[in-house]
Nucleic acid binder design. Structure first.
Lengths: 168, 168
DNA sequence: ATAAACTTTCAAAAATTTTTGAAAGTTTGA
DNA sequence: TCAAACTTTCAAAAATTTTTGAAAGTTTAT
């Protein structure tokens, strides 16, 4: 396979994966483009390579910065802004996990906690089932939360070595 | 908080979480409704409780069965189909992980493998960066894959105990 | 102060996803 | 065989998400 074709396929695959996981496809594609680019790129170049509008490029780049996946770079003597992506895969995974935890898991855990305080008649099957389900999901959510927290602090090798030691 | 209000909030929260993770909101809501219901429910009841159309209810229920999250139940002497949800949280998490792995991770791993065969000039920075990124992501994907496989086979307590032994 | 170079905004348009509901299909019992 | 009871289908409509692009905003150099 040629490099150009490979790049195209990589960008497509990354975009599809993103959209399946609730991340805007363009955002994933811009990230993919920067991931395989040796040099930082300008908004202009990104617009051209992916055939997207200026507004779209700008918002997407802003979002990616918000996710901590790319950074702005300034070249001496130039006014243009350049963007480049963190290329350490473990760092990317950690960053994404951290953001999603903060944005999505944390709010749900908050609601689940509130829901454990719902009062009712212990003999009412409706109440009992509700209570049991909420309590169990709450436990799972807290475990996931705890595990993520530890993962996020962990160093790459340490993490994987530990995982493999158990799961072998 | 009253039970009725709690139910409502739970269904909403579950729906929102679902939509943030690329799962249709209605599907997550139907799942939530069945999760906290002590009895199996008919399509009719689900339609009414969530104010959704017959067609939507039918398709959603079919999808949930496809995900292995709910099951059809037949009551003796009745023609109606009843639906009930698996209530073991660990089983739900495992089921979802398994489905997503099969539907989304596996295809990406296949493409990444193909992309490692892209040929080019080792001195070309474009080629080198592409190669390195693809290789690293491929490694991470395979590790995730392996870990998931083992998780999916693991029993609940065994899994969590192990995780906590490391992450403490 | 001005203008060129560049970035950001956002209302409207396009694309995509989800929902509806009536019609078609199926199963069962009499 | 018929018709009632129930389920499935799917084209069209509605809702939602994403994208566009021109105008407004900002920064910098002279």
């Amino acid at each position: 396979m040629e490099l150009a074709e490979g790049k195209q396929k990589f960008i497509e695959a990354w975009g599809k994966l993103g959209s399946e996981w609730g991340i805007n496809r363009t955002m994933a594609q811009v990230h993919a483009l920067l991931l395989i680019s040796p040099e930082a790129m300008t908004t202009e170049e990104i617009m051209e390579q992916l055939s997207i509008s200026r507004g779209n490029a700008n918002m997407t780049l802003r979002d990616l910065i918000g996710w901590g996946l790319i950074e702005k770079q300034h070249k001496a003597g130039e006014r243009k802004e350049y963007f480049y992506a963190e290329k350490d895969t473990w760092a990317i995974a950690r960053q994404v996990a951290q953001e999603r935890k903060k944005r999505e898991l944390d709010p749900v855990i908050k609601i689940l906690n509130e829901l454990t305080s719902v009062k009712g008649d212990e003999k009412d099957p409706e109440y009992k089932t509700f209570k049991t389900s909420v309590t169990n999901i709450n436990k799972l959510a807290k475990n996931v939360n705890k595990t993520l927290d530890t993962m996020l602090k962990a160093e790459e090798n340490w993490f994987w070595n530990s995982i493999f030691k158990i799961f072998k």
